[in-house]
Design a protein around this nucleic acid. Structure first.
Length: 206
DNA sequence: AGAACGATCGACT
DNA sequence: GTCGATCGTTCTA
């Protein structure tokens, strides 16, 4: 299956965060169906210069070690004691940095992901709106926990590809969309980095 | 050893 | 809009 190689991630993190929008994240959970989503919201985190990054100032600890594995690995951590966040490690090896996945649209395995999020609760407009629009929600739907922390994105369990055709699915209809940049969410503690416009969303053109 | 806190979410006023 | 849940990581002593 055609997937993005480590070269895709081996460059400036802000560029990767933008380039990932519209791409397809693919997950094969053990004993579950193929899951896929179209990325609609990302954020860049750069250890070298960004107080909001867990590896700010090249801080290497047990938690941040995956950020030093080099481009094309997953960095997944537990937050607030109950949710997980998925990141793709970027930049050349030795530069700890990553792109946080904050949102996506379901492409494959939708029913399975719905069950992961809501169990048997029925479909409502509010639940549709809030299905996959947050980092913890994405990990819940994709069955991602720290068990997958550090895995290579060139493996089978988790990777990104350009289009659904790359995994044998029908192409999606073309859409009018633009990339919007803005400040990142939930990092008010991060000093000057608080205002970096490193959050990217894919928005419909009005 | 102990305390503070967090790249969140959902329930509730 | 506010607030609590819940626990690993990190820092301080």
């Amino acid at each position: 299956m055609a997937r993005l190689s480590s070269d895709f991630y081996d460059r400036d993190t802000v560029e990767v965060a933008r380039a990932l929008l519209g791409k397809i994240v693919v997950r094969r959970p053990a004993g579950g169906p193929l899951l896929a989503g179209r990325l609609t919201e990302t954020e860049a985190y750069v250890g070298r210069c960004d107080r909001a990054c867990h590896a700010y100032g090249y801080r290497k600890t047990a938690r941040t070690a995956p950020l030093f594995l080099g481009p094309g690995h997953a960095y997944i951590y537990l937050i607030y004691g109950m949710y997980h966040c998925l990141n793709f490690v970027t930049e050349p090896e030795g530069e700890p940095a990553a792109v946080l996945v904050r949102g996506m649209e379901a492409v494959a395995g939708t029913d399975f992901m719905w069950r992961r999020r809501y169990g048997d609760r029925p479909d409502t407009p509010a639940r549709r709106r809030n299905f996959l629009n947050g980092p913890g929600k994405v990990c819940q739907a994709l069955c991602l926990t720290t068990a997958q922390n550090g895995v290579s994105l060139t493996g089978e369990a988790l990777f990104v590809c350009d289009t659904p055709a790359d995994i044998g699915l029908p192409e999606l209809p073309p859409r009018r969309e633009i990339v919007k940049a803005g400040p990142r969410i939930g990092i008010d503690y991060a000093g000057e980095a608080r205002d970096f416009p490193w959050r990217f969303t894919l928005e419909p053109i009005p």
